[in-house]
Simulated assay, not measured.
Amino acid sequence: MKSKKILVVDDSAFMRKLISEFLSEHPDLEVIASARNGHDAVKKAIELKPDVITLDIEMPEMNGLEALKLIMDKQPCPVVMLSSITKEGTDTTLKAMEMGAVDFIAKPSRAISLDLHKIKDILIEKVLAAAKANISMKPVLAAKPTVIESFVQTNPGQRDRMTFPFQYKKMDKIVLIATSTGGPRALQHVITKLPAALLAPVVIVQHMPASFTKSLADRLDSLSDMRVKEAEDGEILQKGTAYIAPGGYHLKLRKVGSSIVVTLDQTDPEGGHRPAANVTFRSASAIQGVEKVTVIMTGMGTDGADGLIKLKETGVVKAIAESKETCVVYGMPKAAVATHLVDEIVPVDEIAVTIVKYVNDKR
Rank of each mutant, 00 (worst) to 15 (best):
K5C: 03
I6V: 15
L7V: 11
D11H: 08
D11I: 07
A13Q: 14
I19W: 11
S20A: 15
P27R: 13
D28F: 13
L29C: 11
V31W: 15
N37F: 14
A41M: 14
K43M: 13
P50S: 13
T54M: 10
L55K: 11
D56P: 12
K69I: 12
L82K: 00
G89L: 00
M97T: 02
M97R: 05
M99P: 04
D103R: 06
I105P: 02
A111L: 14
S113G: 11
K118L: 13
K120C: 06
D121T: 14
I124E: 02
I135K: 04
A142D: 13
A143P: 01
P145G: 01
T146K: 13
N155E: 14
N155Y: 09
N155F: 04
N155I: 13
G157N: 02
G157H: 04
Q158N: 08
Q158T: 06
R161D: 01
F164N: 08
Q167N: 07
K170H: 05
K170C: 01
M171Y: 03
M171S: 01
V175G: 02
L176W: 07
A178W: 04
T179Y: 05
G182H: 07
G182E: 05
G183F: 08
P184M: 03
R185L: 10
A186N: 02
L187K: 06
A196G: 13
A200R: 09
V203Q: 07
M208S: 04
A210R: 14
T213D: 08
K214D: 12
K214Y: 09
S215V: 05
S215Q: 09
L216D: 08
R219Y: 10
V228W: 05
V228N: 07
K229Y: 03
D233E: 07
G234D: 05
K239I: 00
G240K: 03
A242M: 02
A245F: 05
K252P: 04
L253S: 06
G257C: 02
V261M: 10
T263D: 11
P269N: 01
G271S: 03
H273Q: 07
H273D: 02
N278F: 02
N278M: 01
R282A: 10
S285F: 05
A286M: 12
G289Q: 06
M297S: 06
G299M: 03
G307P: 08
K310W: 11
T314S: 15
T314K: 15
A319F: 07
E322G: 09
E322A: 07
E325S: 12
E325L: 03
T326E: 06
C327I: 00
M332P: 02
M332C: 07
A335W: 03
V342W: 08
E344W: 08
E344K: 13
V346G: 09
D349P: 01
E350M: 13
T354A: 12
V356S: 09
K357Y: 12
N360W: 06
N360Y: 10
D361F: 13
R363M: 12
R363W: 12
